[in-house]
């Protein structure tokens, strides 16, 4: 036992609520950033990820508060727990970034993605596509005699699953927004509208 009353490798006092350092599996985290809606802010965030070799699985951005000039960036990233902590700390240093929220660790979050699918086909295939779209509660937002455009919202895995089903049924084009997410339950004042 070390004469110091501190377990090596522990970090009970961490200001960052670090998980076990030795646990090195890759995790997927959804981060929500509240940023000033100013020129270059997205470039700063993306540049940080590419410059330091972090992953971006998806990224969405839009203004959420016009008068306060605030935008919300939702980034889905992967990394070991220590890399995730580092990403958050690095994002926190970016001057126009006001808040960094890790929706994956801060309670439970609702995550949604929207996707548009162009499916081209006739006859049975077309009927089958429509039937499956119904099961997935997809909306038909455009149709011609031999094509549909479906709109699906849901988790990324629901969209993946729908894409898999549509592929043999004439899926020609797919557009996805990337993930947006909100924490469940009461609104945190910090992350809500400024």
């Amino acid at each position: 036992m070390s004469p110091l009353n501190i377990k090596k490798g522990s970090s009970s006092h961490s200001a960052y609520d670090l998980r076990d350092y030795h646990e090195q599996g890759t995790e997927r985290h959804t981060l929500a950033l509240i940023v000033d809606n100013e020129a270059g802010v997205l470039a700063r965030v993306i540049g940080l990820f590419s410059g330091r070799g972090y992953n971006i699985e998806s990224l969405t951005v839009a203004e959420i508060d016009h008068t306060g000039h605030r935008s919300r960036i939702t980034v889905v990233t992967t990394g070991t727990p220590s890399v995730i902590e580092q990403i958050k700390a690095q994002l926190g240093r970016v001057v126009p970034v006001h808040d960094v929220h890790d929706l994956t660790t801060e309670g439970v979050a609702v995550e949604r993605e929207l996707a548009l699918f162009r499916v081209v086909g006739k006859g049975d295939v077309r009927v089958e596509a429509l039937r499956l779209a119904d099961i997935f509660r997809a909306q038909v937002v455009d149709s011609t005699l031999d094509s549909f455009v479906f709109e699906v919202t849901g988790t990324s895995s629901k969209i993946d699953a729908f894409a898999e089903l549509m592929r043999p049924l004439g899926l020609e084009e797919l557009a996805r927004t990337g993930v947006v997410a909100l924490a469940r339950g009461e609104i945190d004042a910090e992350i809500g509208m400024a």
Partner: peptide, 12 residues
């Protein structure tokens, strides 16, 4: 904050 635990894990 980004210097903390970037390279070396610190207990304190």
């Amino acid at each position: 904050p980004s210097s903390i635990n970037k390279v070396i894990h610190t207990e304190l």
